[in-house]
Design a binder for these strands. Structure first.
Lengths: 254, 254
DNA sequence: AGCGCGCGTCAAGGAACCATCAAGACGCCG
DNA sequence: CGGCGTCTTGATGGTTCCTTGACGCGCGCT
């Protein structure tokens, strides 16, 4: 999949990305594809209420072109569509977009029947669904990292090892216990060593969604991480503070 | 079977992404075995986009011979196949190849898997699946150390022996009786010792499908497993709780 | 040098999370 | 058709940890 097997393609792709300074975070964009107006409007309503930008199209062909110029982060896609069906749309999207696809299916039983065909979406939801659940699923997708392989390359500071699969952190060979949020924050930093991540960016990576409440929250967690890592804010070994911006994982000296 | 052989020639998009550990001299090779061309192509597409070499065959007999001369690192194997079915193919492969096998199952076939009919696969994935998940699983397999006797994996915690073929569980030499679901949950954990599995992931491994109903359900079964294993949640010997995420099988400390 | 603002630390209330218990629902077998 | 084991759902309590606020220090600007 798109992801980032090469870095060049990731950088300018439609990732909501302010690495701190210049552009303010834009609202996530959600494309809703459904040929039944009441349902489409309903979905769009919930999406808007979350502060996300919504666009609605009613058939497969329109969906594909809408993805091109709307560049959504998530596509909510009905399986049954006039023109191209959801499966075909999904497939075409894969060719040029790294948007996550949330497929809507008529009934949970039908998932079985068409299981072989619906392969390719990132998540599924059976109709009828609760709006809460729909929003929760979209949030989960927005929270997913765009790059699944980035952490493998990371050359963080010597003595620090972060394993996202095992969810383990080691400092000089000694295991360190972190809480869920602390781990997520550290992992976000580790994914891009040497890059300054703004608090807003960190918040979105860890908490997901858009609305972020307080910079201070991030500070506190960073503080706790430092304490557990045995790091010192005044003379940091692992996490640099970039005043006025955010935090940065130190790199191995080249 | 219609068109079988390598329709999905190799599309080298980007730099072959070494999966982290050992630098593979050549690009990893993935054999895709599925009799439904759309799915096979889809899978092959994702594989190629990762920079891996893909070959596609459509039936079991072709699969066996393809393994011989293509020498893949990973075989993505549909359970339902014309000719030899996935289980039989898998069994034959074990005789002469140390390729890892990732089995694809439809949701309705999940019952069979829980019943222990499928044997010998290194990982399972239920249809419909997310392409990102498929790639992640393949990466996980590629990352595994390659042993000539591939069966002897799962270096779980000392004192615990889980035999998927035999469907038996032993703790300190004593047999423990587990129900079908309990065994499936424990086996999922055992398949990747040390790796944290989210509740959602566990649910999908055991119950199949992408939608999952209730986290709590997993909790209860974990609780029952622990009780039967003589494990203690507060100070676990076998199964760690990773708060906010899921569960993890403890590893033998190397 | 003085001052303001950003950041680090500490502490406490409250929410989220998980383990356990219990009872209802389901399927399987006799 | 009835009984039993298993799966599922609900409720409860204990524990962790997320969040918020207050306070003090020091960097950097004027």
């Amino acid at each position: 999949m798109r992801e980032d097997t090469d870095l060049a393609s990731t950088i300018h792709h439609n990732q909501p990305d302010d690495t701190g300074t210049h552009p303010p975070a834009r609202a996530p964009r959600i494309l809703v594809v459904d040929d039944e107006p009441p349902i489409a409007d309903l979905v769009a309503g919930y999406v808007s209420r979350e502060g996300w930008e919504a666009r609605v199209v009613a058939d497969g062909i329109a969906a594909v072109s809408a993805v091109r110029d709307f560049e959504p982060d998530v596509v909510v896609l009905d399986l049954m569509l006039p023109g191209l069906d959801g499966i075909e749309v999904c497939r075409q999207l894969r060719g040029f977009s790294d948007a996550y696809v949330l497929m809507l299916t008529a009934r949970s039983e039908e998932v079985d029947r068409v299981a072989g065909l619906t392969v390719g979406a990132d998540d599924y939801l059976a109709k009828p669904f609760s709006p809460r659940e729909l929003v929760a699923r979209i949030k989960a997708l927005l929270r997913r990292p765009r790059s699944s392989t980035a952490h493998l390359r990371s050359t963080g500071p010597p003595g620090l090892a972060v394993d996202e699969d095992r969810r383990s952190v080691r400092v000089d060979g000694r295991d360190v216990e972190l809480t869920a949020i602390e781990f997520a924050v550290l992992a976000a930093l580790t994914r891009q060593p040497g890059i300054v991540l703004s608090r807003a960016r960190l918040f979105r990576e860890v908490w997901g969604g858009v609305n972020f409440a307080d910079d201070h929250l991030v500070d506190v967690h960073i503080g706790n991480i430092r304490r557990k890592l045995g790091d010192n804010a005044a003379d940091p070994r692992f996490i640099d503070t970039v005043r006025g911006v955010g935090y940065r994982l130190r790199e191995a000296r080249p």
